[in-house]
Design a protein around this nucleic acid. Structure first.
Length: 1051
RNA sequence: GCGUCCGUAGCUCGGCAGGUAGAGCACCCGCCUGAUACGCGGGAGGUCGUUGGUUCGAGCCCAACCGGGCGUACCA
């Protein structure tokens, strides 16, 4: 049994500190895992962050959601495995290492040596590991950091190899020569989802050049005809080997400066102006096969010329932009490459690995491509081939890590043939529930429908080495395990590190031809690492086979929207290629966190919020609560510290105050939950109401949580705590908690409030794990995180709740009426007339409650006072619409026009008709509401179908009572100022005008009772020297004198 | 360009299968002040981005447009 109810620490921050210490002491997280070890699994996958970057505020939102969902399921008894993960390979790490070593680019890396370079990578991988772990702990994100999966660990790599071997076995791995996005700085190709991360608007040259037509022998065209060609990449012009036209478009020859320039007809006016001189017209297909002189003769002609420098017909050519004639450089463009293959166009690639022209090229040798643009334009001008040069802004892909503009270059790469499984990818995606759905259906769905093969290889150093060995004959052997490798190549050392450069040295005899097999030098795309985590986190299939089977697929994952093409895709692509269906079944997507002004947070803008600052200022629970309740996770969220403060004040302060109230009196009265507490059915109306509300709230929250509508769930809880629990239940029930002579009633009140607080703690636990745990321990001495989440019992009573709703609405209206006539609530009034929709009327305790709240002697429901009532018809469009169609408004007008007698009759159940265009229609009960409006000297307030009419008339009796209440109010203030304890008894003397004295005498017993006065004397003569505290005061202009002293009588 | 989300009171956001606009904060007025330097009540404040359309009736459905975010795309 609870010995006592502890004081709340002074702030949320202190509550969190204290709770965090308890968790550490109790090793609580592990205990929750152990408690549910035999429960039905709820499978969660942690998307691995890179620990060589610091965690930001945006990480807090997804981590809060992850934690919230996992805690919720855990409280439902599910066994939730929450293995941490670290993404440790790839370009981000390598770039960091380059900086650390003060080098840049592949030649410098290789000069230092791959061994040394990778050593630095390995060291930097965990730079911020501790900060991540500490932040996770501080925000209450429970994750099994003691057994993380780490993508550079040998076991992990071995599982990735296994995956690759499986894929290879299914014929999904191939080496291809394709045009791929290529980062010249990093010297490697990128996958399409990496490219998607780096689009930026840039200003590029807009170049239009001339390509003179020649005949088969190379002689100029006798008519001086030439093509006009547009490009935004002048550096590709030396590599031009073809022009493409659309076979179906019409092209025109335009006389211009002695030449006849060919462009698409649709664009002629844009290029030459309205008064173009058109000399001839051609269909595109008739132009195909024409030869032209290459615009720049810098790159040596290839050995196999093929159809170089001829016009080809391609459907992708449009007349939207440029000239309608497309410059083709198959070495630098996917369309160009494909068309080149079709038409036997050669590839001219004068670039080195770093995107520089090779030294042997005249004019631009050794230059970076983008820097060469102006020189090439100048070169064109000199040869007479320049038509126009300008600039245009368009969005262009950049390296997602280093920011260099990407080049599209035809290169050898390893691919996974995902596009052959497009239908399965789509089918598997259909089995995933996305929150919000449109991300899955639209954004991700579109992406899948446009799926291209996954370029897996990276020409880099720090990554999972591709386990592909190739011999001179071109035979491929994929190694799927370390055991297999040692079988082929001899024993491996115990501490074998599968990374480069060591792995590169391993060779073995080709199983097919006996030749020497060397490992292909590339490493794998990091996204492949992370997408393989479902298997590799268990070192599957080498170990933990059962663990893996019971933890696939994930029931739930949650990451930022930016992972749509990242982790979400790699998980699905790999599981689909393995034939295992979707890797996850539910995914919550969160959007960006913006600053107060809606700007993206970025270091350059200096508007980044440090998560430690946010938590240090407001507390983790407040930040968590704010992030969850301010708006749905999937809409961009503006982070507003003022909003966090408000959330904190509103929810946490209210909840804490409610606890303080409970604890204060529970201590005084020494109440503890026990069998002696009355059963709910035996408790007063308001207790049963609160318990009903609680059950309704539990049901609503459960439904919302099950549907991953966590924002809705916690808004519901917040509203309950503030509106129902604190502002209504506690406020109404305050007197029941102290000095209550009805012991059963006191027990009922304490028990109800205790139950409510405890249930709120349980419900809040997933979202606000610290304060809920503090409170739950304070109430029960047990951690909230080892309890079961509340299940709704069906105890809710809709009638009860509707009655209370009606009462609260009437109270609200009554207050508004008092406001109108400026009569404060302390002044009693005679009567309130009330109308409640549906003919509901209130009785008993509820009626007392309304009378008490409004301080009126009686409340009458208007059936009994029809002489002061006017009936008003309110048409119900929902019913009338379907019945009257176009004439709904006419019918509504007719109903509004019904007279008092007709309405009274209708209310009484008689048949009433309206006439429309000569036709009579009998009104059905649902067609209209008959509402009563008060008339006369009453103050009337309405809200929907509610009406409250207050009689503001005062008489002497009411005035005296009002005065008595004012006196009580002043006496209480004086008591407080005098420093008396709540329970101290006093001796009281009152004096003042006739009104004061009269009221004091009439209501002496009342005043004494309210103020704990053992004696009351009235009149000036009563105030003698013996009173320590004397005060002259003023009650609405009436002077009064109050005197009191502590009584010797023990209370 | 295409796609998607968003646009509702000064600010942050609700608005449940279309039935005639809400909450919180801030502001103003009042009340309360023996759990709560907090609370309560009230008030003012909106042509629901614009324009059309469907409908008896549109914040909600459709179309176009405007503004913003994000995504996407090697249209050279």
């Amino acid at each position: 049994m609870k010995s006592t109810y502890p004081e709340l620490p002074g702030s949320l921050l202190l509550v969190e500190e204290e709770t965090l210490a308890r968790w550490r002491e109790d090793d609580l997280f592990r205990r929750t895992l152990e408690a549910n070890a035999d429960g039905e699994p709820f499978v969660f996958f942690e998307g691995p962050p890179t620990a060589n970057g610091r965690p930001g505020l945006h990480h807090i939102i997804s981590r809060t959601i992850k934690d919230l969902v996992c805690r919720h399921r855990s409280m439902e008894g599910r066994s939730v495995t929450r293995i941490a993960g670290w993404d440790t390979h790839g370009l981000p790490v390598e770039i960091e290492a380059e900086k650390k070593l003060g080098i840049s680019g592949k030649p410098e890396i290789e000069a230092i040596g791959i061994a040394r370079f990778n050593e630095v990578c390995r060291e930097s991988v965990f730079t911020y590991k501790e900060e991540w772990e500490n932040l996770s702990e501080r925000i209450g994100y429970w994750l099994e950091y003691w057994r993380p999966y780490v993508t550079f660990h040998t076991d992990y790599i071995e599982s990735v190899w296994w995956v690759l071997k499986e894929l290879s076995g299914s014929g999904l791995i191939y080496r291809g020569h394709k045009s791929v996005p290529y980062c010249p700085r990093c010297g490697t190709a990128l996958s399409s989802h990496e490219v998607a991360q780096g689009y930026e608007d840039v200003e590029d040259p807009s170049l239009t050049f001339v390509a003179d037509i020649v005949d088969a022998s190379g002689a100029p065209d006798p008519d001086g005809r030439a093509f006009l060609v547009w490009t935004t990449t002048p550096w590709t012009v030396p590599s031009n080997v073809g022009l493409a036209v659309n076979p179906g478009l019409t092209y025109v020859e335009v006389a211009h400066d002695g030449r006849r320039l060919i462009v698409a007809e649709a664009l002629a006016a844009d290029i030459f102006g309205e008064d173009v001189e058109i000399v001839a017209r051609h269909r595109g297909d008739t132009l195909a096969g024409l030869r032209y002189r290459r615009p720049l003769d810098l790159v040596p002609a290839p050995e196999h010329v093929g159809n170089a420098w001829t016009v080809v017909a391609e459907d992708f050519v449009s007349a939207e932009e440029g000239t309608g004639i497309v410059h083709m450089a198959p070495a630098f463009g996917a369309d160009d490459y494909a068309a080149g293959q079709r038409h036997d166009l050669p590839m001219l690639n004068p670039l080195d690995e770093a995107g520089h022209f090779v030294e042997s090229i005249p004019v631009v040798g050794g230059m970076f491509v983008k820097d060469a643009d102006p020189l090439l334009v100048e070169e064109l001008r000199r040869g007479g081939g320049l038509f126009h040069i300008g600039t245009s802004v368009h969005s262009y892909p950049h390296c997602w890590r280093c920011g260099s503009p990407l080049l599209y270059v035809a290169r050898d790469s390893w691919f996974a043939a995902t596009s052959t499984l497009k239908d399965q990818l789509i089918a598997n995606n259909d089995r995933i529930s996305w929150f919000p759905p449109e991300v899955g259906e639209k954004r991700f769905g579109e992406w899948l429908r446009g799926n291209v093969d996954w370029a897996l290889s990276r020409d880099r150093y720090w990554g999972t080495p591709l386990p592909f060995w190739v011999c001179d004959e071109g035979h491929l052997h994929v190694v799927g395990s370390l055991a297999e490798l040692s079988e082929l190549a001899g024993p491996l050392p115990d501490d074998f590190d599968p990374h480069r450069p060591f792995i590169d040295e391993i060779t073995f005899a080709c199983p097919e031809c006996g030749g020497v097999m060397h490992r292909t030098p590339e490493v794998v795309d990091v996204w492949f690492d992370s997408g393989a985590m479902p298997y590799a986190q268990w070192h599957y299939p080498f170990e933990n086979v059962e663990d893996f089977e019971s933890h696939f697929p994930a029931d739930f994952i949650c990451e930022g929207l930016d992972q749509t093409r990242g982790w979400f895709y790699s998980l699905l692509a790999i599981s689909t290629m393995l034939g295992r269906g979707p890797a996850f079944l539910n995914v919550v997507v969160n959007d960006l966190i913006l600053d107060v002004d809606g700007q993206k947070m970025s270091k350059s803008k200096g508007n980044v919020v440090n998560p430690w600052d946010a938590i240090g200022e407001h507390g983790a629970d407040a930040v968590r609560w704010y992030l969850i309740t301010s708006s749905s996770p999937w809409v961009p969220k503006r982070y507003d510290p003022a909003g966090v403060r408000e959330a904190s004040r509103k929810f946490f302060d209210t909840l804490f105050n409610t606890y303080r109230f409970f604890a204060l009196y529970a201590r005084v009265e020494e109440w503890h939950a026990s069998e002696a507490d009355p059963q709910p059915a035996e408790r007063p109306f308001i207790d049963r109401w609160l318990l009903s509300r609680l059950d309704t709230v539990v049901r609503a929250i459960t439904e919302a949580m099950d549907g991953y509508q966590i924002t809705r769930a916690y808004r519901t809880l917040g509203d309950f705590v503030v509106e129902d629990l604190s502002n209504w239940y506690v406020r109404r029930c305050r007197p029941r908690f102290w000095g209550n002579t009805d012991a059963a009633d006191a027990r009922a009140a304490f028990r109800t409030l205790w139950d409510a607080l405890r249930t709120v703690a349980l419900l809040a636990a997933p979202c606000a794990p610290f304060s809920s745990d503090w409170m739950h321990r304070a109430l029960t001495e047990e951690s909230v995180h080892l309890q079961r989440y509340p299940a709704h019992s069906g105890a809710s009573d809709a009638e009860l709740e509707a009655d209370m709703e009606a009462a609260r609405t009437l109270v609200s209206l009554g207050r508004a009426a008092r406001e109108d006539v400026q009569i404060r609530v302390r002044q009693p009034l005679r009567i309130l007339y009330a109308v409640v929709p549906g003919g509901r009327s209130l009785h008993g305790a509820l009626l007392d409650l309304v009378r008490d709240e409004l301080n009126v002697k009686s409340v009458e429901f208007l059936e009994s006072a029809e002489d002061i009532v006017r009936l008003v018809a309110r048409p119900n469009f929902r019913e009338l619409g379907p019945r009257f169609g176009k004439r709904t408004q006419v019918a509504a007008d007719a109903i509004r026009g019904l007279d008092q007698a007709a309405l009274a009759a209708f209310r009484g159940g008689a048949a009433v008709e309206i006439e429309l265009d000569g036709q009579r229609h009998t009104l059905q009960p649902g067609d209209l509401d008959v509402v009563q409006e008060a008339t006369g000297d009453l103050v009337v307030k309405e809200d929907g179908s509610y009406t409250a009419a207050l009689d503001p008339a005062l008489d002497d009796e009411l005035r005296a009572e009002g005065m008595a209440r004012e006196l009580v109010n002043r006496i209480q203030r004086l008591r407080k100022d005098a420093g008396l304890e709540i329970t101290d008894r006093i001796e009281l003397a009152l004096a003042g005008s006739e009104a004061v004295q009269g009221a004091a005498r009439t209501h002496q017993v009342f005043i004494a009772g309210e103020t704990l006065a053992v004696s009351v004397t009235v009149g000036d003569e009563g105030i003698s020297d013996g009173f320590e505290h004397v005060r002259d005061t003023d009650i609405d202009g009436v002077p009064a004198r109050i005197a009191l002293r502590a009584s010797a009588t023990v209370g």
